[in-house]
Amino acid sequence: MLSERFVINDTQWALMEPHCFGKKGDPGRTGGDSRVFMEAVLWIARTGAPWRDLPAEFGNWNTIFKRFRHWVKADVFKRIFDAVSGDPDMECVMIDGTICKVHRHGQGAKGGLKSQAIGRSRGGITTKILGLTDALGNLVSFRLMPGQVHDLRETAEIIEGISCKMFLADRAFDANWLRETLSVSGIIPVIPPKSNRKFPPEFDNHSYKWRHLIENYFQKLKEFKRIALRACKTDQSFASIIYLAAATINSR
């Protein structure tokens, strides 16, 4: 019997099922039990094991892997994440980045490391996840970057169109252009200034303390060993694993 950590509960499944491929009535071939398939991918994500080590109770590992890649290319996991995440609490948002080491099995994709959001940082071969969470600390969106890239590189894209009262970030995000962008949108930047500023701007230190929620979320994500140690060659596959993990966290 599978541990509850690998099982999708009925409430989660009710939200996920409409977005799965291969249902009865869908065009093309009807797939195997989508719930069992999702739990197989969840088992891989949680344990970090190679696909070949997938327990036989889930079915043929190669068939499941091929189905996973089909869903990856069709952005199914992104749609599932959006469906289960509900309406985020956008009173404030938090942004931060976390580094994930890349296993040798996660290297070797066509186009080289840079084409798959993999780079070299102090930690070796790494990928960075830049995440944006809501006021409750639940993931809203994320971007993948090579590990050595500064968090600010993808910040403009990830915050595009957001509407909230406050924007919480650490001093790595203390940039004039970001403060100006937020102010134009009516968002209060809660960002401690860098020590080299001649005229450091003030910030709400009390509100800033809530930024620990995004750090807590990264810890939850990295309980999935396939995320803590990236073994996916393509950024598409790695992002899909993150979307599935985040979907189970957000819908608990």
Rank of each mutant, 00 (worst) to 15 (best):
P55A: 07
I242E: 07
G111L: 06
P27A: 13
I188A: 05
H105V: 13
L2A: 07
S3D: 14
E17C: 06
A169K: 06
S240P: 03
C100Q: 13
Q116H: 15
L42S: 10
N205Q: 13
Y208G: 05
G123E: 12
S34H: 08
P193T: 07
I241A: 11
D26C: 13
Q116E: 15
D33C: 07
D10E: 14
W71V: 04
R252Y: 12
R211W: 05
L178Y: 09
D53G: 00
P189I: 04
C232Y: 08
T155Y: 04
C164S: 02
G25Y: 10
G123N: 12
S251E: 00
S34A: 15
P200G: 06
A83M: 03
S207L: 09
L221N: 06
S34F: 04
R197L: 10
S163C: 09
F21I: 14
R67E: 08
T47F: 12
K220G: 01
H19Q: 11
K78A: 14
D235Q: 15
D53T: 11
I159Q: 04
K222M: 12
M166F: 12
D10K: 11
I242L: 03
L168H: 05
I242G: 01
Y208E: 05
A231L: 08
R67F: 03
R120K: 15
D10W: 01
L182T: 03
A245C: 02
Y208Q: 03
T248N: 06
A172D: 07
